[in-house]
Design a protein around this nucleic acid. Structure first.
Lengths: 258, 258
DNA sequence: CAGTGGTCTAGACCACGCT
DNA sequence: GCGTGGTCTAGACCACTGC
């Protein structure tokens, strides 16, 4: 293992492969890249134990400290989880710990609880232009469309539409979805091998139209939070577009700025 | 410099000060705490250069690597900024780099630009109960109340009310505020010695009431984003309460989930 | 007890910014 | 050329987990 350009190791003897490559990146970044590749390729699946720091150091022929720094960053990005005395695990949505990771709507008072799920509609259709653009597909390619209402202790609060690339989410059925209690990302991960690592949201205020009002059992015109989300899996591939309408009379969207 | 409990250094000879202290924290965390104290006390002011890693290592009698790890975390928390070849600086809001750090409203298309500021009202008054609670004051203590409209290329978009502890923000006047172009936090920092390090927001959708509609030049009933923010300075002291109403017809609140 | 991640040290060299 | 932070290594010991 060598830096992409120039000698970097204290023991580099032969700097004879003099550089053409203009890009330099530190060793630990390259290690991080290699580990990420293994995550992406499925060599280690979500929830599994990855090799110990010593083993990885041996595999890549670098010191343990270098592997450590690579894993530190992966851990900071929530791609892996370290557990002292046990090892390092691939991050998963199938854990109590990550139930609320992507759910920012919290009750104004009272305990946080995961909402009930009510699937209204599941269809396969051709991607409209805007959806295709967001999901990095060609317009007209197959997508899975999904509509659902989520309720907190019986009160309908979130109306959501999802678009997913048809190629990845082939066998997605309403039955499969209704069995599930927790976050949909847990199902996406275990059933379709697609683990979400980050997402980007655009938030607006809108008024409920007629249909929305009926589904959320509010007056038409009620102000709602419009949340449009694009989610990404390994390698920053966009694999989900979500458009949600949140009722914020007893909940709020919480955000931490730093 | 020693860990709070038990020997930790490879060279610790005398472990005769056998522990009563039940709490253990790593050396680098303690160093981090000491550096934070110096930041809080104003030993190094925003924008200033702090001592080099070698100097700090000598001061605290630890290795450079330990100081490095402490500063790494402070840097990750945006309390300091490292610049290779120059040194480590105390983070400041008086920099182009941090203009948009706490402003999450971005235009749907076009370049990001800092909005114009229009102060409507500045008053000293006694803290209402809810405000006092949020700012960790006693009900009735003096606060500065501030109301303003912010416009993007002439279009009024944000209506905001601020409450600030009167004890800290004594000489805050409308003139002072109107001179300023950039983020208010830059002024708070240089004029009142209060540097904001993080904030927490609660977001809802609401409808514009009569007065709001006039100030934002929209129809009453227009849906708006309600953003309530509490900001904190060193030591997690709450020092600002902000209630904003954002017009989201040409802008959106952007958020990154990870 | 062995194995894992977590902390700490010491020393080397690299990349960068300035003078 | 010097001083800064950035990278890399090697080796020691600590804290936690599970056999």
């Amino acid at each position: 293992m060598q830096p992409t350009e120039s000698k970097n190791s204290p023991f580099s003897e032969a700097d004879s492969y003099s550089a053409l490559a203009p890009t330099f990146s530190p060793l630990y970044q390259q290690i991080k890249g290699l580990i990420t590749q293994s995550l992406q390729s499925g060599e280690w699946k979500p929830g599994e134990l990855i090799p110990s720091e010593m083993e990885l150091a041996a595999r890549f022929k670098v010191s343990q400290g270098t592997v450590r720094k690579a894993i530190d960053e992966l851990s900071a990005e929530n791609l892996v989880v370290r557990r002292q005395g046990k090892g390092t695990f691939v991050a998963t949505h199938n854990e109590a710990r990550s139930q609320f990771r992507f759910l920012r709507l919290v009750p104004d008072d009272g305990e946080r609880a995961y909402p009930e799920n009510n699937i209204i509609e599941v269809r396969r259709l051709r991607a409209p232009a805007d959806v295709a653009r967001m999901l990095e597909l060609k317009s007209g390619e197959s997508v899975v469309f999904l509509k659902r209402v989520q309720s907190f202790s019986g009160v309908p609060t979130i109306l959501e539409e999802l678009w997913l690339p048809g190629a990845i989410f082939k066998g997605l059925t309403m039955e499969r979805l209704n069995e599930y209690k927790g976050p949909m990302y847990a199902l996406f991960e275990s059933e379709f091998g697609t683990h979400m690592i980050r997402a980007q949201e655009q938030i607006r205020a809108v008024c409920a139209d007629q249909l929305t009002a009926e589904l959320l059992v509010v007056e038409p015109g009620t102000p709602l939070l419009s949340v449009e989300r694009v989610s990404f899996t390994y390698g920053d591939r966009a694999v989900e577009l979500r458009r949600g309408l949140y009722l914020t009379s007893a909940h709020h969207y919480r955000n931490e700025l730093s």
